[in-house]
Amino acid sequence: MTSTQNAPDTPTRTGPLAVVRRHPLLTFFLLANLLSWISWAPYVLSQSGLGVLPIHVDEITGMLPGAYLGPIFSAFLVTAIADGRQGLRR
């Protein structure tokens, strides 16, 4: 009979970094959306958006950082965690 249990010399990794390594595409999409919405929050809450905050943010400075920096930073972070320095060089 063969055993279906993990061999003792192959540890099972747990934690947030292991989740990123197992599911890099899902992590990228979640992180890109999260970072984009965080950077869009001042614009959405300003007088130009919902009017909750007493500040005025124009569309260019309010929308562009979220549109570009969220996905770019997410791609960099997930690649660095999943593939290490070799992945960043590629």
Rank of each mutant, 00 (worst) to 15 (best):
L69R: 03
P8I: 05
L77I: 10
L26A: 12
T79M: 09
D9Y: 06
L64Y: 11
A67G: 04
L53S: 04
T14Q: 13
N6D: 14
L25I: 02
G70N: 06
Q5R: 15
F76L: 14
T79G: 14
N33S: 07
G62W: 06
V20F: 14
G15E: 15
R89W: 00
P65Q: 11
P71Y: 01
L31S: 07
S3H: 15
L69C: 09
L31P: 11
N33K: 04
D58E: 14
T10A: 13
F73P: 03
W37G: 03
L17Y: 15
L34S: 01
P42I: 07
T2V: 14
G84N: 02
A75D: 13
F29T: 00
L35M: 05
L25W: 01
T10M: 12
L31A: 10
W40H: 00
M63W: 11
P8K: 12
S39W: 00
D58F: 15
I38N: 09
L35I: 00
A41I: 00
T4N: 15
A18T: 15
P8C: 12
F29Q: 01
F29R: 02
S36C: 14
R85S: 13
V19G: 11
G84D: 12
V52H: 07
G51K: 04
I55C: 01
Q86F: 08
M1P: 09
D83W: 11
S74I: 09
Q47T: 07
A18H: 15
F28A: 09
F73G: 07
A75C: 04
G49P: 03
I81V: 14
